[in-house]
Write a protein that binds this DNA or RNA. Structure first.
Lengths: 122, 122
DNA sequence: CCTTGATATCGACACTCATCGATATCGACT
DNA sequence: AGTCGATATCGATGAGTGTCGATATCAAGG
């Protein structure tokens, strides 16, 4: 299985990519087809300019979190499109979201980005 | 411009992604739409299981290089498909190729992978 | 030269995906 | 209850892409 369920208080549940035991550094150990698919899914989440901008906006925001309402205008896409991309980022485990009243707040998951860095290491 | 031409003796020329001045770490500085597109192109190259396997096979090969002829069977795809994926990896600047007689040898470009690692760093 | 084998390109097809308008859901406030 | 505003979902559409058979290119050897 390459997916697991993350559940914690206040944080909305979602099936997210589990990169913990998937995959040694690309340049070190061999990579079978299944692990390659899991890893490819993670990089797919980064393979879109809008998602990279969203990730950047969230990561560089004060307090490390951003209201979804502040993400639509900066990327210049419609609200449904932004919502879609945020879902992709969540499913990849790259961001977390938490609903507070009317608003949903997003924060990056540093560990997941670190996992991808590790895969690219020597 | 996000592309530049790499030319060196014995190594086949190709327009490759230039990540040198593109982009500070995602979690540090802001990312405009143009740089986001360049960066997304780089991650797109990693966003396919076959390409990840190819990269892995090339990187872990003896001497750090692999004949294209030894890449078709391990990934279980047709020769044209493998050739296509190798081209994508080359255009992303992730691998280099060199023709020696009948065969073409591929090697990873560590600096390019390091650039992507840097972008993901804190 | 002609054949053989390795690699790249072409053309076509199926499938995925980014995008957005319309709509649904849900919380807050009156 | 009813309205308003924020976010998510749905459905459709157009662009992009992975795949492979057929074909082209090119080097080596006879």
């Amino acid at each position: 299985m390459s997916k697991s369920v993350t559940a914690s208080v206040g944080v909305r549940e979602l099936e997210v990519l589990d990169l913990a035991d998937c995959c040694a550094p690309l340049r070190r150990e061999s990579l079978d087809a299944e692990h390659a698919s899991t890893l490819a899914s993670a990089f797919k989440a980064l393979a879109d300019p809008v998602r990279l901008q969203l990730l950047n906006l969230i990561a560089t925001a004060d307090g490390g979190e951003t209201c979804a309402c502040d993400l639509v205008e900066p990327v210049g896409k419609s609200q449904p499109t932004v919502s879609h991309h945020l879902k992709v980022l969540r499913e990849a485990g790259l961001v977390q979201s938490e609903k507070r009243g009317t608003w949903v707040w997003y924060a990056v998951v540093p560990e997941q980005l670190d996992e991808l860095r590790r895969v690219l290491s020597r």
